[in-house]
Computed example of a mutant assay.
Amino acid sequence: MSEQHTYSVVTVPVSGGELTVGVWEPVGEITDTIVAIHGVTASHLAWMDVVPTLPGVRIIAPDLRGRGRSNQIDGPAGMAAHAADIIAVMDAFGLANTTLVGHSMGAFVSVVTAYLHPDRISRLVLIDGGLPLDVPAGLSAEELVQHILGPTAARLDMRFASVDDYLALWRAHPAFANAWTPALEQYLAYDLVPDGSGALRPATSYAVTVDDTVDLNTGSLPRDAVAGISVPTVFVWVPRGLQNETPGLYSPEQVARLEEALPSVRFRFVEDLNHYTIVMSDRGASAVAPIIAAELAELHV
């Protein structure tokens, strides 16, 4: 954890239950606040590497419904439900408006939140997500999840005898071959919850993952939200995907099409990182921190 921040966990009432929210408070003066929104099978601890790179910034990061310690919330997910939860978090902290920093699916949630509540969101930082993916048409829900997430979703049905067994699965993951850290181990251990029979399972609900993945790729609201972006927005993308493969979620060709279609969005390419390590590594955090800090600085001009 950051020596420049104190860390705590609070709960926020939302439709269907309570959202667990991680909060990193600067030790000294608070210069800015961001709400950081994680990816489709992640948790708020995905931001641990980013926190120390933002001194003076309060980072408020929820476990999205169906994930982490928010995995017992009743009711459907989808981008509109997540957006409502983000506004509930902002209300709980007395934030009239704020900057949203979203990674992967969290970036889609960020765009939809800004679209539905434009007076509440000042700026968007979208990290390898939030803009339309280039996926084949006509895929079923299961095929869509497999095409985009692959083994990331498959692990959700797996059971583990211990935390060490789960860490062993991830140690073999190509995305973290050169980026294994104590912070990553803490993030992964937090992902596990009892399955009721003496084993451990990932906290993320597979059903919610399917619903969210289908919604962000085929729903009309995310498309309308992208077309209606009205706040200053920067999009950060990387060359490698969830398995450290190339191209990543966004190919150079898709980015070129998006740049032409969205002239108001600023595009930033970060070399030699993958979809995970852009936030969950020291190098990734060091790359995105100046981008976030520059956006926050614009609020004070």
Rank of each mutant, 00 (worst) to 15 (best):
P132V: 06
L133W: 03
L133R: 00
D134G: 08
V135T: 07
V135R: 00
V135S: 02
P136F: 03
L139S: 09
S140D: 14
S140M: 10
E143Q: 08
V145P: 15
V145S: 07
V145W: 08
V145I: 11
Q146L: 11
H147M: 15
I148T: 08
I148M: 06
L149H: 05
G150F: 06
A153S: 07
D157L: 14
D157E: 15
M158G: 13
M158N: 13
S162W: 09
S162M: 11
S162Q: 08
S162Y: 09
V163W: 05
D164K: 01
D165C: 09
Y166K: 05
Y166V: 13
L169E: 15
L169T: 15
W170M: 14
W170V: 11
A172L: 14
H173T: 03
H173E: 05
P174M: 02
F176P: 03
F176V: 02
F176K: 00
A177M: 09
A177E: 13
N178G: 13
W180V: 03
P182T: 02
P182G: 02
A183C: 07
L184V: 05
E185H: 01
Q186T: 11
Y187I: 07
L188M: 02
A189N: 04
Y190V: 10
D191R: 02
D191V: 07
V193W: 07
P194F: 08
D195L: 04
S197C: 13
L200W: 06
R201G: 12
T204V: 15
T204H: 09
Y206I: 12
A207D: 14
V208R: 00
V208D: 05
V210D: 09
D212C: 05
